[in-house]
Design a protein around this nucleic acid. Structure first.
Lengths: 341, 341
DNA sequence: GCATATTAGTTAAGCGCTTGACGAATCTGC
DNA sequence: GCAGATTCGTCAAGCGCTTAACTAATATGC
């Protein structure tokens, strides 16, 4: 249905149907019940179809003072895990809101300056992945917002988190049960709280379970398979000298790097070193060995965050401002030989 | 810098600075040279800072008839490869345009209906990943658009593609050199041309190189590691019976699935079956064995597409409407034992 | 010294849509 | 048959911004 270059306006539809633009607006927005007769509604709908009209969100947003956009702000979408979050969000938002992604610089916390410009779009709401408190403060102004994966933000801000503490505890308990007494931790150097929380939870749990983690056994690098691989290659000699037999990784991407380096070094996983990660990426189950990992239900996180946002947009205040999703440990070959389970 | 609930308008800035809104607009848009005196410019800037004003894109877009949004429409962002495209696009767009992602249903071609609604936002331009010709026809209307990874669309539409034909040829040539004479192909069942082209190029090259690919040795499934793994498990017996010793995969994700299934089946890769894929994902280099894969430069594709879009937006018509980026074959352990290279 | 540029700034007309206020017509109930 | 309720529609005032057209003041050329 090719259209002429000139865009179709409500006024054109109105003329075509022999009604006012007010009526067109009412019909186009589905607010016609009790305001528009069946007959006129038909004619307008007909005209809309015939001319190929669709509501101009710009004009509409200006008049309403708000758009139907929900913007998901994310610092890093390279993680496959993120696609699941989106699936979850989309399943809830449906056609009522349009979901748009704003990607800020990879690996960092979202940038407030950049995000503030998006506010000019008058989004109906914001979904923010892994924001820092600072980011949220900078944003200022009371606009509907739900944070995802933001374990350390103000309690007054709606958020959906993962139970990382439980996940870390599970990993450590698993290590303990396998008899490990000295561990290392491969961290990620991003400014996000998500990863800080993982590390701290790991260390705290290790202490409780009597597993020693020497400060020198904590090292961090970018979330990148290759970089993690190189770092581990450098560190392994010293860690081994310290008697390290288990390694916690901030992300499965790190664990992949370690697996790769181990192969190069002729180091056997898990007999010489047990490795566990976080995220349970699709690739983690199928690598060799499979990576023992804390599974986080990303789809559900997206779903619940969107649900919470809708509650806010509908004027209901969510009964639970912040919620935490359970995690579960997927035990695989990187900590325990296949068949030994 | 907390703001009062009421949003800051240009009129408020104008009053604060003692000028008209026209002047504020000029300054805020950097069009002040030759129109506004140094002194007034200073005062306006000062007022903007003081009040925390930022241009309302809604009002601005309505007045200008176009926004500063560039929308990247993508059917599937779960592929890690996609993050690179975004990096490339962002590097070119900078701060002049705001990049927003619209994710349509995973694995499918982008939906025109959904996209048409986004047109109400009056985007400055569209970047569309893997569209079909039908999608583009449905969109209708002359708006700045560049397609990415769309090998089969009308020649009049600006696009940046990958040289998949060369990649497929490289894979086949590699198989031939290793002495394989019978191959299978594991395809993906999405409606995108991208993958159709891969398959056809593979088959055509196979014919040229005298490698037989029985029709029954072509099977397809979703792009999902687990699904691919299961399908391969079912097929392998019959393929082996047919004498298949080499397998082309539509994506590296498929190849991962195959690796996983092979391990389960006790099948040695590459000695019993050589496996190659497309995409060269970050994980492909570090799996065991590493996956031989056609590397596609996603960042560059994003960069060039954005560049082309900018040319169009600036009124220059790109000297080359459609361009094709080279691919290169990364040979790894899944086709050739390590050390044998 | 005067016509012409140049510079600085303002006015006001929209851009396309929504919605509260208002009017007219039709329907109730008694 | 009529007051009051109900139904159907339109009017018109914005929403916040941009920009062509215009005015005014100052600089320039000869």
């Amino acid at each position: 249905m090719k259209q002429p270059a000139r865009r179709v306006t409500a006024a054109m539809v109105a003329e075509h149907a022999g009604v006012s633009t007010a009526t067109v607006s009412l019909v186009a927005n589905g607010k016609s019940s009790g305001r528009v007769s069946k007959k006129n509604e038909e004619r307008v709908l007909e005209a809309i179809r015939e001319l190929g009209y669709y509501v101009d969100s710009i004009g509409s947003s200006l008049a309403k003072g708000v758009s139907s956009l929900v913007i998901l702000v994310a610092p890093d979408i390279s993680n496959p895990f993120f696609a699941k979050v989106i699936t979850g969000v989309r399943s809830v938002l449906g056609n009522d809101y349009q979901l748009l992604l704003s990607v800020t610089d990879a690996g960092l916390s979202p940038s407030a300056a950049e995000t503030r410009r998006l506010l000019g779009l008058r989004p109906a709401g914001l979904l923010v992945h892994a924001p820092t408190q600072e980011f949220l403060d900078d944003l200022a102004g009371p606009l509907p917002l739900v944070a995802l994966d933001a374990p350390r933000i103000d309690e007054s801000i709606p958020a959906v988190n993962m139970d990382v503490a439980q996940g870390a505890e599970d990993v450590v308990a698993h290590f303990a049960k396998l008899g490990h007494t000295k561990a290392a931790y491969l961290d990620a150097s991003t400014g996000t709280d998500t990863l800080t929380v993982r590390r701290e939870a790991f260390l705290a749990a290790a202490q409780r379970y009597g597993i020693e983690v020497l400060p020198s056994s904590i090292d961090s690098c970018m979330i990148d398979v290759k970089v993690a691989s190189e770092l581990f290659e450098q560190r392994w000699d010293s860690w081994r000298a310290d008697g390290v037999t288990a390694l916690g990784c901030a992300t499965d991407n790190h664990a992949f790097g370690v697996l790769h380096a181990a192969r190069k070094l002729g180091l056997d996983i898990p007999s010489q070193l047990a490795v566990a990660g976080f995220d349970d990426l699709p690739y983690s189950a199928t690598s060799s060995p499979g990576i023992t990992s804390v599974r986080l239900n990303a789809t559900e996180m997206g779903r619940q965050a969107a649900l919470k946002l809708r509650e806010i947009l509908d004027g209901r205040s969510p009964q639970e401002l912040q919620s935490t999703l359970p995690s579960s440990l997927m035990v695989r070959g990187s900590t325990q030989p296949e068949g030994a389970r």
